[in-house]
């Protein structure tokens, strides 16, 4: 991957919120998945929603994407209700999912340009932008390969290129690095952060991995059952990350430490 200079990050962020959730409730049948959740994500900020499986993280992401409507409370994204004004956020938001979700009949570059074509950009311009993004994520030599010819890490890079190519104000990442091996995940996380900070993207990252949360984010929100906030904290300098990790593990509960020890053997 080409190495753009990595800005320091975790710098002062303008106060304007891009995402704003206010007392949001969402239930499926009789089960309250999200109960009275409120938080903001400010412009240019990278915020991680961290929680165990079933904590309601993906539901929160779907509410922000506008594919679900809250039962109570309000969700605002760039001053719009993302569900009611679904089309108003066209081109302003992009999502990178847990799996690459590439279209197998399109080559890497054709996948990377998909969002641009949907936004109505001319084919030639879309291709040029897609090629440049593939170059940025280190896949210039694989532009014309089909999906089955790419490794898992390469596919995830194409997926990131597809999301970033539309130049969105807001990038949502749903466990985007959790399917990858440790080394590939670390490299991709670092590269993504560099690109996000370089292009001043506002990012909401959903993950269950503490490493992803503290290495990427300016701020971490730890969710417990029913997406209730257990801890909300800015990420401190590297020297204090040990304390943050301890606080997060405490917030997640005793199983978090056990999971960590199982992950790292």
């Amino acid at each position: 991957m080409n190495e753009p200079p990595i800005p320091s990050g975790r710098t002062a962020i303008a106060a304007e919120p891009v995402i704003s959730l206010n007392r949001v409730v969402k239930s499926f049948a009789d089960f309250k998945v999200v109960d009275d959740l409120s938080f903001n994500v400010r412009r240019g900020e990278i915020v991680t929603l961290l929680g165990r499986t079933g904590a309601g993280k993906t539901t929160v992401l779907n509410l922000v994407m506008g594919t679900m409507r809250p039962d109570a409370g309000s969700v605002r994204v760039a001053d719009h209700d993302p569900f009611r004004a679904f089309k108003a956020l066209r081109g302003r938001m992009a999502v990178s999912f847990q799996t690459d979700r590439l279209l197998p009949w399109r080559t890497a570059v054709e996948n990377a340009e998909l969002g641009l074509l949907i936004l109505g950009r001319p084919r030639r311009e879309a291709r040029e932008i897609a090629v440049s993004w593939l170059d940025r994520v280190g896949l210039s030599g694989a532009a014309n390969k089909y999906v089955h010819e790419l490794s898992g890490g390469m596919r995830q890079r194409v997926s990131l290129a597809r999301a970033l190519a539309v130049d969105p104000e807001l990038v949502l990442l749903d466990e985007s690095f959790s399917q990858l091996d440790h080394v590939t995940s670390t490299v991709l996380r670092r590269d993504f952060c560099a690109l996000a900070r370089r292009f001043e993207k506002t990012c909401l990252l959903v993950t269950h991995r503490i490493d992803d949360a503290i290495e990427m984010a300016d701020r971490v929100i730890v969710l417990g059952a029913n997406a209730r906030i257990r801890l909300e904290t800015t990420v401190p300098p590297a020297s204090e990350l040990g304390r943050l990790r301890h606080d997060i593990e405490t917030a997640l509960g005793p199983e978090a430490e056990q999971e960590r020890s199982q992950t790292f053997g």
Binding site: L89, G91, A94, V95, F97, R101, L103, I118
Partner: peptide
């Protein structure tokens, strides 16, 4: 469904869903 959700995230028109997916 994964692919449908992916393409929906770009907020396409119905015609674009037919054409690209």
């Amino acid at each position: 469904k994964d692919l449908v959700d992916m393409i929906e995230s770009f907020r396409p028109s119905r015609w674009q869903v037919v054409r690209y997916l």
